[in-house]
Each structure stands twice: as C-alpha cells, then as structure tokens.
Design a binder for these strands. Sequence first.
DNA 1: CGATCCCGCCACGAG
DNA 2: CTCGTGGCGGGATCG
Length: 356
Amino acid sequence: MSSSYAMVSQDAESLALQTYSRKEKSLGLLVSNFLRLYNRDDADLIGLDHAAGKLGVERRRIYDVVNILESIGIVARKGKNMYSWKGFGEVPRSLDKLKEEGMREKLCISSSNNSDKVLDDVEREESSFSLTPDDQETSSSSKIDQKKEKSLWLLSQNFVKMFLCSDDDLITLDSAAKALLSDSQDPVHMRTKVRRLYDIANVFSSMNLIEKTQIPETKKPAYRWLGSESIAETGTSLFNSDEPKKRVFGTEITNLRAKRNKTDCSSNGKQIGYKKHDDENTEQESKPAASKYVFGPSFPTGAASKKNENVRKGRLQEIESLASTYKPQYCNKEITSLLGHFTETWKRWYAELDRK
DNA sequence: CGATCCCGCCACGAG
DNA sequence: CTCGTGGCGGGATCG
C-alpha cells in the first residue's frame, strides 16, 4: 500500500531530530534555496507568502532574506507582499552605485565637521505611481522613515560599501559594527549590530559575494570581498549535474516545524512533519516534496562525483589548506572562490556524515 | 568558554 | 482591532 514517493522515512531522521542542527536552518541556506527557486529565467514576482510556504520557513525569515537581497538589487519591492525578481545581472549596477555613494560619504565624513551620523538616504524614487496632485509636500524626502537608519537594508548596503571603498581587503564584523556605529563603543549596541552583521555576512557568503576567512596574524575571523563575478548562480552553475540521485536530505521542506527545544509545554509524542498542512499554495503545485532544494549546505552541482566516498578527510584537508593558505592576490579569482565554496560545503558534509 | 546566529516576541504604522 | 513589517536580543549551538 505504500506509494513510491518515499515520504519521510518514519525513523530515518531520528538522529537528526534528536540533535537539533542550526546549520540546517541557517539564513545562508535559506537564501540558497530562495535563489534556486527564483533564479529561473522566467523571473516574475515573488510573493512573500508563496516564498515562505515554498521554502518552508516562517514569514519573518523571508523578510530578512528579501531585505538583504534588495540591498544588492537582486529583488525589488513591488508592493505589499510582493517583490520582483531582478536577478544577478542587476548586481554590478547596484554595486557601482553603492561604491559611488560610499566614496562620497567617506570623504564627507572624514573631512571637516564634527557631527557624526551617516545620514545617507538613497531613495531611488522608482516613480511610484500616484503623486497626489495637490497636497503632498514638495520637499522633505524622508521624515517618517527615520527608522530606516537601523534597517537591515541600510546596514547591508553600508556593509557592502565598506568592502567597495576600503582599501582593506579583510573586514571583521567587529570593525564593521564599530564603523557603522559611527563610534561609541556601547557594548550593547555593538552586540546587536554584530548579530545583524552575522546575518548579512551569511547571506552574502552563500552567494559567494564574500567569503569567510581570517586575519593571517590574529586568526580573527574576517570576510573578504569576492566580487560580483563570483556570484554566478550560486550552485546551479557550470556543468549541468546529471547526478541521478545525489543527496536528498529530507524529503520535503522539513524546514518547517522542528524548532529548537524551547519551552516544551506539554510535549506529546514525536510526530514529525505533520503540522497543519494549511498551505493553500497560490498556484497549483505538483506533489509536495521532491524538488531539489538543498537541505544540507548547498552542494556543488555536478563535479565531485568520483571523489565522493573515497577520500574522506584527507583530501578535504588538503584542499582546504590549499585554498585558504595559498591565495594569490589575483590569479583566478573565480576558481578560488569556487574552490572555497566547495571546500566549505564538503567540510560540512563530512562533518555531518561523521556525526552519524 | 566565546563566537555564532535562529527564533519569534512585540512595537509600529496603515488600513 | 487586524495585518504586514521588521527591530531586537534571549539563549541555544557551534567550535
């Protein structure tokens, strides 16, 4: 009586459930899936609800993703609940603009005056339709949106500006937070800022826009700018993978429900994915499940087919050291970043396999 | 233990 | 009040 769609092996993941893994629900991974989902040529509109349902996450998380992606121009807000896909092609343009602004601001700040504050508002008036004829002020661009100062969107842009404008190739989140805080070493604010920066950094990392490394001397974790050339398609690039059955972690968007062990009130049972399948899906949807969203860390589509089970840690270590220790300034930026990405991915796989 | 960073409470503005 | 947004930071996880 069992259908072929092996839907959720009853106990295959018992271990996984037992040990909650943060990595499986990281923002970076979510972004990877998001990109994979909307990077289709027929780029259309993105509904927040649709995205949330499709990716199996709470709506709140979609806001994070979208806000950050918007800061680079990959998506643009169209209206309530609606964003439009712009694509990677838009990134270079956005980056240029950010660089310009960043340079301008930098000069402005470092020279003269004593008032701090970034005071940057870009307001790219997209000529939002309807400009009430009468009434409506002619000046004052922003007033109500003073809250934007702390928005993820702005923080994200400023973070990018740091890379584009600074001559330092490596940037630490602490330094970024400090700089973006325009001084004042309030530990509390710093803390919060850094938290956000982590989110942003993870997103950009998963897009290969930046890469995590560490300061040679201090060993302090830091990020390096990779550039828009490396963005590629984040996983769906190069050689079409023809791997029949690679690794299908879960079976469905198991991202939903499986939260940490929080205040466990009246825990009853160990049901797994069943949790109100209320998704009504905007469009029709073939069977749930399947698809090819990555569950574990994003994996290199194609490639890595032979060196799969054989070399285990040895090779990995080798490659890793090769990738991080040997990093010529220029050389092949693309290859390097690609390698780095794969390396990280492999590392995670191995770690996971090892755990099991 | 400190570095990371997910989760979701809850404030806030617009119907 | 409801709803769409999205700051914010507690505290679980990772290394």
